[in-house]
């Protein structure tokens, strides 16, 4: 556990050493604020639905940028060799990196708390939906982190890691919007696979175990796949 903390601390600090962290946070805030406020006054409703509606897509594009260097850079610079010859287990390394990137996702989401605060002055806000939305957003982000981590472990090229991660996350985010292509019998299965669908449920303020289980299993699968890749490299 102590080892996980050390890796978490090091990786999280790394984000703020390079300018990438600040750029990503700034872009995220600007894009979400624009998407949100551009319609907010038209509808004249005190809720965050517009903000949460686009979140699966935005995070699918942003999170792989955060996770792309986690393994790729180590592989490219050769520090992967140092990492693996230290007394650390694969699990400690993977979980440490996963938690660091997830914490960074939380840091990206944090500034957007301003939106509900502003709205609560203007009208009557359903805080349950907001809290549910943030829990969902964090789980969604963490799932994408697990996928991005896996993509990063595949290659020493950060760009490839980023694109592979985006492709998988994007597919999960939009697959429930593509359901009209899909034959009736498998519709339910495909819908269940979609991260957008589960996120929508949670962001309505209903924290259902099925949705939690979905995100937990995506995270588990992502981390387990990463573990397999590391084992294969060995």
């Amino acid at each position: 556990m102590h080892q996980v903390q050390l890796i978490l601390k090091k990786e999280f600090k790394d984000y703020f050493v390079s300018p990438i962290a600040y750029i990503v946070i700034a872009i995220f805030v600007i894009v979400t604020a624009w998407l949100f406020f551009s319609k907010f006054f038209l509808y004249n409703q005190a809720n965050l639905r517009d903000f949460f509606q686009y979140l699966p897509l935005i995070l699918a594009l942003v999170v792989p940028v955060i996770t792309m260097q986690l393994f790729s850079e180590e592989l490219n610079a050769g520090s992967y060799e140092l990492l693996l010859t230290l007394p650390l287990s694969f699990n400690e390394i993977i979980i440490g990196k996963f938690l660091a990137a997830s914490a960074f996702v939380a840091a990206i989401l944090a500034p957007s708390v301003v939106f509900p605060l502003v709205i609560s002055f203007l009208g009557d806000l359903d805080w349950g939906a907001v809290i549910g939305g943030y829990i969902g957003a964090f789980l969604l982000g963490a799932s994408y982190v697990a996928i991005g981590l896996f993509a990063s472990s595949l290659t020493r090229n950060q760009i490839i890691a980023c694109i592979v991660g985006m492709a998988i996350c994007f597919a999960l985010a939009i697959i429930d919007k593509m359901l009209f292509f899909i034959p009736q019998p498998v519709l339910g299965v495909i819908e269940y696979l979609s991260s957008g669908y589960h996120f929508e449920n949670i962001s309505r303020g209903i924290v259902d175990t099925r949705d939690i289980v979905y995100f937990a299993s995506v995270i588990f699968l992502g981390l387990y796949a990463t573990h397999l890749v590391m084992q294969e490299k060995e």
Partner: peptide, 17 residues
């Protein structure tokens, strides 16, 4: 790993630290 100290070729340390 606990008993061994290892320096790989050309010391690939974390660059930004």
């Amino acid at each position: 790993k606990d008993m061994i100290g290892y320096l790989p070729e050309s010391a690939p340390l974390y660059k930004g630290m």
